[in-house]
Design a protein around this nucleic acid. Sequence first.
DNA 1: GAAATAAGTTTCCTATAAGAAATATTTGAT
DNA 2: ATCAAATATTTCTTATAGGAAACTTATTTC
Lengths: 210, 210
Amino acid sequence: MNSKNPTPAVTAKATISGAEQSLEPLKLGTRLRQFRKQRDWTLEEASRRTGLARSTLSKIENDQMSPTFDVVQKLVKGLEIDIPQLFTKSNLPQNIGRRALTRHGEGTPHPTATYEHELLCTEISNKRMIPFKSVIRARDITEFGELVRHNGEEFLYVLEGAMTFYSEFYEPVSLSAGDSLYYDSGMGHACVSTSPEDAVIIWISTPNSH
Amino acid sequence: MNSKNPTPAVTAKATISGAEQSLEPLKLGTRLRQFRKQRDWTLEEASRRTGLARSTLSKIENDQMSPTFDVVQKLVKGLEIDIPQLFTKSNLPQNIGRRALTRHGEGTPHPTATYEHELLCTEISNKRMIPFKSVIRARDITEFGELVRHNGEEFLYVLEGAMTFYSEFYEPVSLSAGDSLYYDSGMGHACVSTSPEDAVIIWISTPNSH
DNA sequence: GAAATAAGTTTCCTATAAGAAATATTTGAT
DNA sequence: ATCAAATATTTCTTATAGGAAACTTATTTC
């Protein structure tokens, strides 16, 4: 991002702040000013890029008015900021510098009828990815009442054994150790082991946004 | 999400549409209506929850006006929708049912001075996670001019060998096969191999929102 | 340090967003 | 089908957003 970060040494323990989910009014104006300044743009420049009047921009930045949605869109386009960033309270709120380690076999067990999950790195929450290691117990697609589906995306990497990935829109595909797969988990899906030993995979899921 | 999805069989090949990043006006209204209907709420109900007038909601949903920013915020809060979801163009636009498979060793090579990356599942873009498999060539922290940092989060799982994870806010930590680590990648970080053979890891990164 | 230029703010006006109430439409009973 | 209740849309009014230009406040330049 910004270029002046010496940071050669590795020091200081982290100060991990707890997860905060407050509902503050969200200072849009201040935020926008940050972005503009960051890019070293003048109001004039910003006006040129967004197609909005200097005065309008000024008022917005000073929280003297609430822009309409299409103005917000012009802002976002023109100032090249992405919206989530705009809405998410502050840039580096709670998650700065946090870290979680899980030793081999030390994850949180979470067995189901068809999978034997081991949740990894659970001590931090609000993650953008949910990692786990799973033993695939299922041996036949019929063991799943219906295919699993939940909004989001998933990635899996086969650690041991062999398995078949069934999904709603594709033919079943066989995977073995070292193969990987990325898919939309909103599409119905299920895994079954095909090797003598149950297959073991690393599975990463994005948290479902509803 | 909605409950009536029989989907027992596994049929039909997918129609994977290409990555589209168009700059459409973004049908906010239609979108909102979707959300409201999904929850089976009446305009009255929505009005109660958001504190906005029924009429206002109606007009917004019918794209008859562009709501102000603070109204948008009330909507987001009241209708319990999260923003990325709202702004990311349509819920099931292009990404529905897409899938990518990468066979063992068939990823896209991407060598650097310190790592030997193999990008996985690259044929689909706009992913919410970027997976790769990496051989850690670095043998000493000094090989990194300065620690790597980029907004987002990362997860890694050690496949083979042993390594040490250096970071800005923590003491170095040693990992070996089977261990996993989740961290904020905005915090400076770097990996070095410590085993006779170079360590190999699965690495998943979230795309940097700037 | 004064004049000139550039950056930011305020004023004023017109277009439009937001709420209240009236009207229209849909849904569901009998 | 008919009526009634519920739900959605339209009208009407007022409060306010957004642009043009005047004004004020930094920054240069000489």
